[in-house]
Amino acid sequence: MLFLLFQLGQDRYALEARRVVEVLPLLALRPLPQAPESVAGIFYYRGQQVPAVDLCQLTLGRPAESRLSTRIIIVNYLDARGVGHWVGLVAERVTEVLRKKPTDFVGPGVSIKAAPYLGPVLLDHEGAVQWIYEQRLLPDPVSDILFSQSALWAQS
Protein backbone atom coordinates (compact mmCIF):
# COMPACT_ATOMS: atom_id res chain seq x y z
CA MET A 1 0.00 0.00 0.00
CA LEU A 2 1.34 3.37 -0.96
CA PHE A 3 1.23 6.28 1.46
CA LEU A 4 1.86 9.95 0.91
CA LEU A 5 3.96 11.39 3.72
CA PHE A 6 3.70 14.89 5.08
CA GLN A 7 4.63 16.81 8.19
CA LEU A 8 2.77 19.04 10.54
CA GLY A 9 5.44 20.81 12.53
CA GLN A 10 8.00 18.15 13.44
CA ASP A 11 5.63 15.18 13.28
CA ARG A 12 5.24 12.92 10.30
CA TYR A 13 1.90 11.69 9.02
CA ALA A 14 0.73 9.49 6.18
CA LEU A 15 -2.30 9.54 3.90
CA GLU A 16 -3.36 6.59 1.84
CA ALA A 17 -2.11 7.51 -1.63
CA ARG A 18 -5.13 6.16 -3.47
CA ARG A 19 -7.30 8.70 -1.68
CA VAL A 20 -5.26 11.52 -3.15
CA VAL A 21 -6.58 13.21 -6.29
CA GLU A 22 -3.57 15.39 -6.93
CA VAL A 23 -0.77 17.13 -5.07
CA LEU A 24 -0.50 20.83 -5.96
CA PRO A 25 2.00 23.49 -4.99
CA LEU A 26 0.92 26.01 -2.39
CA LEU A 27 -1.38 28.16 -4.49
CA ALA A 28 -2.62 31.61 -3.60
CA LEU A 29 -5.83 31.11 -1.61
CA ARG A 30 -8.74 33.47 -1.45
CA PRO A 31 -9.75 33.77 2.20
CA LEU A 32 -13.33 33.07 3.19
CA PRO A 33 -14.64 35.72 5.56
CA GLN A 34 -16.08 34.47 8.84
CA ALA A 35 -14.83 30.97 8.20
CA PRO A 36 -13.09 28.98 10.93
CA GLU A 37 -9.36 29.60 11.09
CA SER A 38 -8.50 26.19 9.74
CA VAL A 39 -10.23 26.97 6.46
CA ALA A 40 -7.39 28.68 4.68
CA GLY A 41 -9.49 29.76 1.72
CA ILE A 42 -10.63 28.63 -1.66
CA PHE A 43 -8.78 28.15 -4.91
CA TYR A 44 -9.73 27.29 -8.43
CA TYR A 45 -8.69 23.87 -9.54
CA ARG A 46 -9.33 22.94 -13.16
CA GLY A 47 -12.24 25.33 -13.37
CA GLN A 48 -13.80 24.26 -10.10
CA GLN A 49 -13.84 25.95 -6.69
CA VAL A 50 -12.13 23.88 -4.05
CA PRO A 51 -11.81 24.78 -0.35
CA ALA A 52 -8.45 24.44 1.31
CA VAL A 53 -8.05 23.35 4.91
CA ASP A 54 -4.77 24.15 6.62
CA LEU A 55 -3.87 21.04 8.59
CA CYS A 56 -1.24 22.94 10.56
CA GLN A 57 -3.85 25.43 11.67
CA LEU A 58 -6.25 22.61 12.45
CA THR A 59 -3.84 20.55 14.55
CA LEU A 60 -1.14 22.97 15.74
CA GLY A 61 -2.98 26.26 15.78
CA ARG A 62 -0.53 28.00 13.44
CA PRO A 63 -0.65 28.36 9.65
CA ALA A 64 1.56 26.17 7.47
CA GLU A 65 4.92 27.67 6.55
CA SER A 66 5.10 29.22 3.13
CA ARG A 67 7.71 26.98 1.50
CA LEU A 68 8.13 25.03 -1.71
CA SER A 69 7.65 21.77 0.16
CA THR A 70 4.35 22.95 1.64
CA ARG A 71 1.74 21.65 -0.75
CA ILE A 72 -1.96 21.21 -1.23
CA ILE A 73 -3.12 17.61 -1.22
CA ILE A 74 -6.49 17.28 -2.94
CA VAL A 75 -8.59 14.45 -1.54
CA ASN A 76 -12.13 13.38 -2.21
CA TYR A 77 -14.09 14.05 0.97
CA LEU A 78 -17.51 12.56 1.58
CA ASP A 79 -19.88 14.82 3.48
CA ALA A 80 -22.57 13.67 5.92
CA ARG A 81 -24.93 12.83 3.03
CA GLY A 82 -22.26 10.75 1.34
CA VAL A 83 -21.69 13.27 -1.45
CA GLY A 84 -18.07 13.54 -2.57
CA HIS A 85 -16.29 16.90 -2.59
CA TRP A 86 -12.76 17.85 -3.43
CA VAL A 87 -10.91 19.35 -0.49
CA GLY A 88 -7.39 20.70 -0.52
CA LEU A 89 -5.35 19.85 2.56
CA VAL A 90 -2.44 22.19 3.16
CA ALA A 91 0.43 20.30 4.77
CA GLU A 92 4.16 20.77 5.22
CA ARG A 93 6.99 18.76 3.67
CA VAL A 94 4.89 16.84 1.23
CA THR A 95 7.94 15.38 -0.45
CA GLU A 96 7.86 11.63 -0.06
CA VAL A 97 5.84 8.52 -0.50
CA LEU A 98 6.19 5.33 1.48
CA ARG A 99 5.23 1.78 0.58
CA LYS A 100 4.14 -0.19 3.64
CA LYS A 101 1.69 -2.86 4.59
CA PRO A 102 -1.34 -1.66 6.60
CA THR A 103 -0.33 -4.21 9.22
CA ASP A 104 2.99 -2.41 9.73
CA PHE A 105 1.02 0.26 11.54
CA VAL A 106 0.11 -0.46 15.17
CA GLY A 107 -2.64 1.07 17.24
CA PRO A 108 -1.59 4.20 19.10
CA GLY A 109 -3.09 2.96 22.36
CA VAL A 110 -4.86 6.20 23.03
CA SER A 111 -7.82 7.71 21.27
CA ILE A 112 -8.37 11.41 21.41
CA LYS A 113 -11.98 12.42 21.03
CA ALA A 114 -11.10 15.77 19.53
CA ALA A 115 -8.87 14.11 16.93
CA PRO A 116 -10.78 11.14 15.50
CA TYR A 117 -8.63 11.31 12.34
CA LEU A 118 -5.54 9.94 14.08
CA GLY A 119 -4.90 6.37 13.06
CA PRO A 120 -2.31 3.76 13.93
CA VAL A 121 1.40 4.50 14.06
CA LEU A 122 4.37 3.10 12.16
CA LEU A 123 7.92 3.24 13.50
CA ASP A 124 10.83 3.49 11.10
CA HIS A 125 14.44 4.64 11.34
CA GLU A 126 13.37 8.27 11.30
CA GLY A 127 10.75 7.91 13.99
CA ALA A 128 6.99 7.61 14.04
CA VAL A 129 4.56 8.08 11.18
CA GLN A 130 0.90 8.35 12.04
CA TRP A 131 -1.82 7.34 9.62
CA ILE A 132 -4.41 10.06 9.04
CA TYR A 133 -7.96 9.11 8.15
CA GLU A 134 -8.79 11.94 5.81
CA GLN A 135 -12.53 11.23 5.97
CA ARG A 136 -12.57 12.14 9.67
CA LEU A 137 -10.32 15.18 9.36
CA LEU A 138 -12.85 17.95 9.18
CA PRO A 139 -14.71 18.82 12.36
CA ASP A 140 -18.45 19.05 11.79
CA PRO A 141 -18.64 22.88 11.90
CA VAL A 142 -15.97 23.11 9.19
CA SER A 143 -17.53 20.41 7.06
CA ASP A 144 -20.95 22.08 7.39
CA ILE A 145 -19.64 25.44 6.25
CA LEU A 146 -17.73 24.03 3.32
CA PHE A 147 -20.43 21.82 1.92
CA SER A 148 -23.74 23.31 2.92
CA GLN A 149 -23.48 25.85 0.15
CA SER A 150 -22.88 23.33 -2.56
CA ALA A 151 -25.95 21.52 -1.27
CA LEU A 152 -27.95 24.72 -1.76
CA TRP A 153 -26.67 24.98 -5.31
CA ALA A 154 -27.50 21.41 -5.96
CA GLN A 155 -31.11 21.99 -4.84
CA SER A 156 -31.64 25.08 -6.98
Binding site: L24, P25, L26, L27, Y44, G47, R67, L68, E96
Partner: peptide, 29 residues
Amino acid sequence: YSAAAVRFLARPLPEGYQLERTEEFAQTS
Protein backbone atom coordinates in the same frame (compact mmCIF):
# COMPACT_ATOMS: atom_id res chain seq x y z
CA TYR B 1 20.85 13.10 -2.49
CA SER B 2 17.24 12.98 -1.32
CA ALA B 3 18.18 14.90 1.83
CA ALA B 4 19.63 17.62 -0.39
CA ALA B 5 16.43 17.63 -2.41
CA VAL B 6 14.36 18.05 0.74
CA ARG B 7 16.58 20.96 1.79
CA PHE B 8 16.12 22.47 -1.64
CA LEU B 9 12.36 22.25 -1.31
CA ALA B 10 12.45 23.84 2.13
CA ARG B 11 13.13 27.19 0.44
CA PRO B 12 10.57 29.95 0.72
CA LEU B 13 8.39 30.38 -2.34
CA PRO B 14 10.17 32.24 -5.14
CA GLU B 15 8.67 35.54 -6.23
CA GLY B 16 5.83 35.21 -8.67
CA TYR B 17 5.77 31.45 -8.29
CA GLN B 18 2.54 31.28 -6.37
CA LEU B 19 0.52 33.49 -8.71
CA GLU B 20 1.83 31.71 -11.78
CA ARG B 21 0.91 28.32 -10.38
CA THR B 22 -2.46 29.55 -9.15
CA GLU B 23 -3.36 30.67 -12.65
CA GLU B 24 -2.06 27.50 -14.19
CA PHE B 25 -4.16 25.20 -12.01
CA ALA B 26 -7.25 27.40 -12.20
CA GLN B 27 -7.60 26.73 -15.89
CA THR B 28 -9.83 23.94 -16.95
CA SER B 29 -8.10 20.71 -17.54
